[in-house]
Each structure stands twice: as structure tokens, then as C-alpha cells.
Design a protein around this nucleic acid. Structure first.
Lengths: 351, 351
DNA sequence: CTGTTAGCGCTTTCAG
DNA sequence: CTGAAAGCGCTAACAG
């Protein structure tokens, strides 16, 4: 292994000078700098990450707590992981994956061992216990999703998140509300909302809970003009049968907002089985689909703003790390609630 | 931060004794061991990963080179990442993600800085340039997919992979061959094969190239009894139109083997648009779908053996790291080519 | 069975 | 503007 010492002797300078050239924490003469840089290039020198970390107590690594693999896998999780990775590199951080299988002990291991400067938590649930652990460990962090139960909205339509842990998320309540009101506005008089899977609702995942809240708000707001059927959070095996019952009924809805995005193919299959054409006979409106996931045909939709979310959450942890380093409160870096956008809205048109 | 020194003084032993208790590299009396363990628990001590790494030159980290995010994202990539992570933990390794956006420089950075003991490469292409780089860097590695162009098969039906870099992969050629011959065996007389996306074929991704090879072999083998149409690798925008042309024709195939799995929803949409029912009028047979990804209805299929692949590739890197440590050839740990399995074969039945 | 000690490669203070 | 030297927390060789 080639070390700083090798570079130093080759460049004819002191070892510390090489360090200063690399870190830039001291003014160095042009001449010396060039000599050092040349030696580095010639020897193919790379700084030892562990030595640097041991000395400086900074790892330039973020821990990413992923939902566990296996049955509960959602395609979105992997996409988030990859884009978090890109965003982190843009700030000079690498990303170490932590499977939820390891849970809280994994986070302790990471923080205690000093393997990461900060953490990002995915698939956050309301009152997520991991948040308390991270606070206790003193590890700066930010969430993809929020741990707060949905509260009321103020006059400006914004929820109060003061005191909440730093997070980035789509405004799921607003997204579902937008989907339903837009469908109503397009002339649909029979609306239905398919929430996230029963398991996600039971696990109190933020997106699932807030989506339901938004649907409730929309139903109330539209009451009188439009009936909104709020379906039960479906169990995986029962989904198809329930959809057949819903869509086979003559009083079926003409628009179906689907937050349960892995169920969209099932929705399309059930519609086909009932002899309904999409979009002519039934308007299917997915909420939270991955960009690029077309379900095979153009649909009006609200996409998951993956890049915005991962960019934002990364900025938040980085800010929290900086605050922590400066002796300030790493929890006070704020949050980012992303406004939903309805795409291909012209496809909403009621038959 | 609580260090070994703190633990040692609390337990009334030498600092090295604490180290020996932790590493188990020396016999320790029961009495001493208990005292040390108690002190560790009381103080909440965690060993410093960077110090340990600096000293021992072992990181217990694997680098995972992911295909880059953005347009080319495939849902499979994220799933692999998560399951690799699980498999690695089972061997005591953490996983550091490397986006392909960084490419070869990323690998150099990782190897040079001593941030990982080994690497796993995803989405490997034939003659993948990263393989040469890894060999040059002396970093043990294993591939998900193989960098070899498909060769002929011996009498036992096995390809010769001697000299190939360590890899784990589904036997894609056998998978496509199995799909087509099984469909023919079920009575279909008009078969078609939809290969991977044009971009993947052009990028010479192993699965894409070997799938094509298998289709060619099957077509040859079935010639005389059954006609197999080998479709062109589709460009994303053209897929739907091409399928309409294929399925709208009265001489359309009755079974369609689809290796382009992200296109399955499009296939189903096109079939519906042509008034074809699946599976009654058209048998759709996906090859390489993620387990659990149902496309909304039961289909005969060959799934991607994600868990087998990730388990195997992890065992291979771990073996390569051990070989490297023992001064042996880390490239000589072999490979694992997984035999395809046809699921729900009864759904193949020709109308 | 346990203790003492020499570094691993780096950052940073102290001294020119 | 540059050099010398201390020491981060750990492992493992050496010495009882």
C-alpha cells in the first residue's frame, strides 16, 4: 500500500505537507503543491479512509435504513436506495445499507462503531421507535416520510410540523385529496379510493395513514355533490375478489383513485374481467407510482417524486450533520413536504 | 466516546485483554471474561470500526456496484441490492453502495481507500471493462451475471466457464429455451419471443445476450414442428405499436415468451386492445419476473431467483476474499449457474 | 493465563 | 510558508 510517507519522500517534502495539500487546510506554495500532486499521480496514491476517519472522527458515510427484503418488498424501496446514493455522492458521502431485518440493533451498531456520520430512515411509521433511538444515540438523521400522525391544517392549508424530526415526503394527504377532487371536477360522480395494503395501514406507515386522512377530508369536502367510497385497506389475497365485487356492480364507480400502487395491475385485470375498458368505462388514477412505471398504458396519475424526495432528505441529513458538528440542534433543520402534481390530467375526462 | 481503555480500567485489566476478549484470539479465564463483558455492557462500549480497520486492514464491508439511477432503472436492481445486503450481513459484512454513475473511478476510490474487502458487480455486460479493473486493483469480487459471451454447450448441456470471473446467474439461455419448448410441448404451434429492451441488448448485458442465444437454440431445435418468431429487441416507445401489429395479425402467435419483463403490462394492454383474452386467446409467459410480481393475474412464468443469486454471489465474494487473504487466486472460486424453473406450468395449456 | 508495547496512516498542534 | 511530533483506538507480536 502506498502511503503519505511514500508520497512525501518522493516529493521531497514532509509527510504533513502532503496532508495539507490534500485537505487544503493550509496555504501551500504552488511549487510544493505541484510536486506533491505529481508524486501522488505517479505513485497512484489513495488516502486511507480508515486512518482519516480514525483521526478526524468523520466517516463521510450515511447509513440508510431500508425496509427488509422478503415478502414485504416494494419496488419503490430499491429505487429510493439508488437515488439516495446518487444524492449522497453529490455531497461527498457514501451510503451504507442497513436492512430493517437488523432493526434498532443495526442502528446502534452503526452509531456506536462510528461507521456513519448520519442516517436516513425509510418507510417511516407514525411514532416510529427508531426516531427515539437515533435521538438517544446522538446520530444526526432525516426521514423519508414523517413520524407524526396527520394533524389538522391551518388557514394556509399547511400542517404544523414544529418539533417533528427532519423529514422529506410527498404530501400524501394533499395528493389523495387532489386526485379525488380533480376526478370530481372532471365530471365523475361515482368515486372510489383504494388505500394502501392492510399491512401498511396496520404498520402505521406515514404514507398509508396520511393518504387515508386525505381521502376522508376529500369525502367530506365533496359530500353533497359526489359520493366517495372509501374502500378497506386490502389484504393481498383478497384484493382481486374485492375489486370484482366493486366493479361488477352496476352502481360501480367511474373513477378509482389507487394509492395501493402495487395493486394497479390487479385493478386493470379486474376491470378487464368485468368487461370494462380503461379509461373509457373506468378511470384508474394511481397515486404514488414510480416515474417511468406506466402500467402498460397512459393513465392520469400522481407520481412519487423520488428525486425531489431523495435530494431533499440528503440535504437535510447533511445539514443536521453540520449542525451537530457546530454544537447546534441537528433536529432543527426543518423538513420538506412536497406538493403533489397531477400528470396527464386530460385523461381524467369522464366517459 | 467510550474506548477499550475505559473498559479495561473499569474491569481492572489491561487494554489488550479487552481486545482479546472481543476478538477471541486468545484463551481468557472465565472470571476475566465476565468482568470485561460486564464493563462493556455497563459502559455501552462499541468497538471503533475505523481503528479496527486501520489496524487489521479488514473492513468487513462489501462494495456493491449498482446500475445507475434515472431512466435506465429496473425494479429488479433495487431488489437485488436489498437481498445482497441481507446475505452479506449473514456473513458479517456490511454493504456500501456504489452507483454506476461513478463507474470505474468509483471502484478505484473504494479499493484505493481500502473501504471494502470485496466487490459485487450488478448488471454485468459481456466483456465488462470493470472486470479488468477489479483484477488490476487486486480487489476480490464476484458478479451478478457473467461477462462471458455465450458459448456452445457440451454433451452434458453445460457451458464451459473455466477462466471466467466468479459469478452467479440464472441460466438465461436455458430459461428461454425451457419457456419456448414447454410452450410448444403444451400444444402451441405459433410461438414468439420478446427479448430484452434494445438498450440492454446494445449494452451487451449478459442476461439479454444469453436470452437471445437460448431463443435461437430453441428455434432451431423446434424447427419443423413449430415456428418461433424472434422479435426485435424493442425500443421503449415502439413496443406498444409493435405488439399491436404482432397481435392484431390473424396469423398471430398463441404464446408469447417475454424476457422484457418491464414490458409485460404493455403486452397485456396490447392484447386487451386487440380483443384477446389472456390466457384463453394468448398465453403470456414472462421470463425473469421478480417473485411476487404478479402482473395482476396468474401467469405461467420463470421467476428471477433473486435469493438464490444473491446468496450465491455473496458466498463467492466471501470465498474470494478468503482466498485473497490466504495468498491464493481469488478468481478461482468457481461460479453458480442456476437452473430455471417453470412455475404454474398448467397455465400454459393451449386454447 | 495476562500485561506491555509497537505501530496501522492520517490530521493537527506546536515550533520554526 | 514548511517540518516535527503527538496521538486517534485498536490488534498482535513479544514478554513474562
Amino acid at each position: 500500500m502506498v502511503t503519505m510517507k511514500d508520497v512525501a519522500s518522493r516529493a521531497g517534502v514532509a509527510q504533513s505537507t502532503v496532508s495539507y495539500v490534500l485537505t487544503g487546510s493550509r496555504r501551500i506554495s504552488e511549487r510544493t503543491r505541484l510536486a506533491v500532486e505529481e508524486a501522488i499521480a505517479e505513485l497512484g496514491y489513495h488516502p486511507s479512509v480508515s486512518a482519516r476517519t480514525l483521526r478526524s472522527a468523520r466517516t463521510q458515510v450515511l447509513a440508510l435504513a431500508l425496509p427488509r427484503g422478503g415478502d414485504g418488498y416494494r419496488p419503490t424501496d430499491g429505487r429510493f436506495a439508488i437515488e439516495v446514493c446518487d444524492a449522497a455522492r453529490a455531497h461527498g458521502y457514501d451510503v451504507l445499507m442497513l436492512t430493517e431485518r437488523e432493526g434498532v440493533p443495526g442502528l446502534r451498531r452503526m452509531a456506536g462503531g462510528g461507521q456513519a456520520d448520519g442516517a436516513i430512515l425509510m418507510a417511516v411509521a407514525v411514532d416510529d421507535p427508531r426516531v427515539a433511538v437515533l435521538r438517544e444515540l446522538g446520530l444526526p438523521f432525516a426521514l423519508l416520510g414523517t413520524e407524526r400522525a396527520p394533524g389538522g391544517r391551518g388557514a394556509d392549508g399547511a400542517e404544523d410540523f414544529s418539533g417533528a424530526a427532519p423529514f422529506a415526503d410527498l404530501d400524501w394527504a394533499a395528493a389523495v385529496e387532489l386526485a379525488l377532487t380533480a376526478a370530481a371536477g372532471a365530471g365523475h360522480t361515482g368515486l372510489a379510493y383504494l388505500p394502501c395494503a392492510a399491512e401498511e395501514v396496520a404498520g402505521r406507515k406515514g404514507y398509508a395513514v396520511r393518504g387515508l386522512a386525505g381521502a376522508g377530508a376529500a369525502a367530506e369536502r365533496l359530500a353533497g355533490s359526489t359520493r366517495v367510497r372509501l374502500l378497506e385497506p386490502p389484504a393481498p389475497d383478497a384484493l382481486y375478489e374485492e375489486l370484482l365485487a366493486l366493479l361488477g356492480d352496476p352502481r360501480r364507480p367511474t373513477a378509482l383513485a389507487v394509492q395501493h400502487v402495487v395493486g394497479v395491475p390487479t385493478v386493470l385485470a379486474a376491470a378487464e374481467a368485468c368487461g370494462l375498458r380503461v379509461p373509457e368505462d373506468l378511470c384508474v388514477l394511481p397515486i404514488g407510482m414510480l416515474p417511468g412505471d406506466t402500467a402498460g398504458r397512459p393513465l392520469p396519475r400522481i407520481e412519487l417524486p423520488v428525486t425531489e424526495m431523495t435530494t431533499a432528505v440528503t440535504e437535510l441529513v447533511v445539514a443536521a450533520i453540520a449542525a451537530h458538528g457546530a454544537g447546534e440542534d441537528p433536529g432543527a433543520v426543518g423538513h420538506r413536504l412536497i406538493r403533489p402534481a397531477l400528470l396527464d390530467a386530460q385523461l381524467l375526462h369522464a366517459g
